[in-house]
Simulated scan of single mutants.
Amino acid sequence: MPLNFVAKPNDFDMYKGGKEIMRARSSWLYRLRYIWFPLFALGPPAVLYIWPNSLPMWMIRISPILAMMSLMLFMWVLLQKRIQLNQSIQNAKTFVTPTAYTLDEKGFTQESAVELHRVRWDAFMDAQNTSQGIALLIAEAHFVTIPKTAFTSKEAQLDTLQTIQGWIKAAKASA
Rank of each mutant, 00 (worst) to 15 (best):
L3D: 08
W167Y: 09
F143R: 00
P38V: 02
G107L: 10
L48E: 04
W121F: 10
S153V: 09
L42W: 09
A173E: 12
E115K: 14
R82L: 14
D126K: 11
A7Q: 15
Y101C: 01
A156C: 07
A100F: 02
R33W: 11
K148L: 05
G17I: 02
Q165T: 03
N129Q: 13
W121Y: 05
L85E: 09
L66P: 12
A139W: 01
G133K: 01
L3Q: 10
L55N: 01
Y34G: 00
T145L: 03
L79G: 06
A41Y: 15
Q157H: 09
E105V: 06
P98E: 05
F5R: 13
N91Y: 03
L39W: 10
M59G: 06
T97S: 06
W58F: 03
L161N: 14
R33D: 06
D122Q: 12
N4V: 12
Y34K: 04
T130K: 03
F37V: 12
A41W: 15
L161D: 15
R120F: 02
A173F: 05
D104Q: 07
P147Q: 00
L158R: 11
R23P: 00
T149H: 05
L39R: 00
W167I: 07
R33S: 14
K154F: 02
L29T: 04
K154N: 00
F143W: 04
N129E: 13
F124R: 04
L32V: 03
S27H: 08
M68C: 15
A150P: 04
A100P: 02
G133F: 02
M69W: 12
P9S: 07
W28I: 10
L48Y: 15
M68D: 13
N91H: 13
D122E: 09
M125Q: 11
L136A: 08
E140G: 05
L29K: 08
Q84L: 07
S54T: 08
S88D: 15
T99Q: 02
I89V: 11
P147Y: 07
M72Y: 07
R61W: 04
V77P: 00
I134L: 14
S88C: 12
Q132P: 10
F5V: 13
D11I: 01
M68S: 15
P2C: 02
T145D: 04
N86M: 14
A7Y: 15
M14Y: 11
N53Q: 02
A127K: 03
N4W: 08
F74W: 14
Y101H: 02
Q90R: 11
L29H: 11
V114G: 07
S112Y: 02
Y34H: 06
F143G: 08
D104A: 00
P98R: 13
S26H: 05
R82K: 10
L161F: 09
S70Y: 09
